[in-house]
Computed example of a mutant assay.
Amino acid sequence: MVKPVSLEGATLLQVIPDLAAGGAERTVIEVCEAVVSAGGRAIVASAGGRLETELTETGAVLVRNESLPSKNPVTIRRNVGWLKALIQREHVDLIHARSRAPAWSAYWAAKSTRTPFVTTYHGAYNAKSSFKRWYNSVMARGDIVIANSTYIAAHIAQTYPDATARIVTIPRGVDLEAIHPDNISSNRTEMLQQQWFGDACPDRPLILLPGRLTAWKGQQDAISAMAIRRDRGADVLGTLVLAGDDQGRSGYLEALKAQITSLKLDESVSIVGHCSDMGAAYKLCDIVLAPSREPEAFGRVAAEAGAMGRPVIAAAHGGQLEIVDDKLTGRLVAPGQPGEIADMIDDILKLDASQLSALSQAARERIASRFSKASLQAATLNVYARLLERGH
């Protein structure tokens, strides 16, 4: 990895509620890797979670605080003191917050200790009341405010105009080595297929929808699209795989199962839970779906699918409009429209080998040139260096 700047002797603290899974959590790990590579110390304050091992393998230090995810005002205020003590004890030179509740604690701790403060605005947070708009505003209070897409940069500027001059757009990045067809062994894909289906051989095509199980990710629309395709006599129906945690949303998981059963799709839709080898998942599948009903801040699934050279069908809003070049690298559909998803699945299945190869090549080139992990790391480290050089 190219080291764009030296952070020799600097200590950088990132604050995030937990390390369970997700784009923000993955980006924390990628930035830690870059900080350590550039000679700095990387510390993460978090309640921890599934990605802890990956974090510590970068050389970063996890400082655990089980209360950081809490939105309780008393707890947030208590965590100010906890973070101030951490900043002073570890001689922290810069603090980077990635979620609203702990960001308030980090903001007040940074002001108290005169520590440079960076935020990354990871989503288009809802602000249906003046209180919620104020609560969200902490993510626009950084000395530099990182937007993870042009879409989010525009949202911040519109919602918090005073932050406009401090916005820096740094798209999330894809690990082009980890998500590359040549680097995924057949053993890994065979193991994953065994994990998902046992000894059964799933019907092709394999259509993958990765993402936590929540209504806005569009799993219900994907299931409905499979029923539409079956009812109109699709030549090959295939298998839809929903890969992701319910994260405690047991009611939604049960609703998905009920929908599958009511549509008589039990043999054609599989809910497989969390997937720890997404590289193998992308290589194993034939088509990737990203049909989010609400705008994605970035759209990591669409980007990773493109890096693997897999056709992606994505909802045409939010950050995904920056990732998918309609018809050239994938297909865009209106949000919440199962019929369009069904149409685009069948459209892709009609492509011949040369057309699929051209789509795959165009997708990989687009992601490599615009959304690489190395680009994210270099740009983030340059933000850190700018603040450290000017003393914030």
Rank of each mutant, 00 (worst) to 15 (best):
D326N: 14
A358R: 15
A106F: 09
P295F: 05
L242W: 05
A297S: 11
R77G: 10
D352P: 11
W216R: 04
A60S: 02
G198T: 11
R50D: 13
Y125S: 03
A363Q: 12
A234M: 00
L321T: 06
L176V: 14
E190C: 09
R232S: 02
P171L: 01
W216G: 03
V138T: 10
W134Y: 15
P291Q: 05
G22I: 04
A153Y: 00
E57G: 11
A281N: 04
F371D: 08
D245Q: 11
S262G: 03
G391E: 09
S372W: 08
R141M: 09
R26M: 12
G319P: 01
I345L: 07
D266W: 02
V236G: 09
I95W: 01
R100I: 00
A178M: 09
V63L: 13
Y135V: 04
L240I: 03
A368M: 08
A315T: 09
E8L: 07
Y151N: 03
D326M: 01
L55K: 12
V35E: 03
D245C: 06
P102R: 04
D343A: 04
G279L: 08
G273F: 04
V80F: 01
H274K: 13
R188I: 10
D93F: 03
L13G: 07
V145C: 05
S250R: 13
E52R: 07
Q88K: 02
S105C: 02
Q220G: 12
G123F: 10
A34I: 01
S268R: 10
G299K: 14
Y384S: 06
S70D: 14
N183T: 14
A225E: 09
A362E: 00
M278P: 06
Q259N: 10
M1P: 15
L51I: 04
D231T: 01
C32G: 12
P335I: 10
A163M: 00
D143T: 04
R166T: 00
M191V: 14
M139C: 08
I167A: 08
S185M: 02
A290W: 07
G59M: 09
A24E: 00
P210A: 02
L7C: 07
P202C: 00
I260K: 07
E8F: 07
V118Y: 10
I228V: 12
E322Y: 08
F197G: 12
V312W: 05
V174Q: 05
A255N: 10
T58I: 12
S276M: 14
N72A: 02
P116M: 02
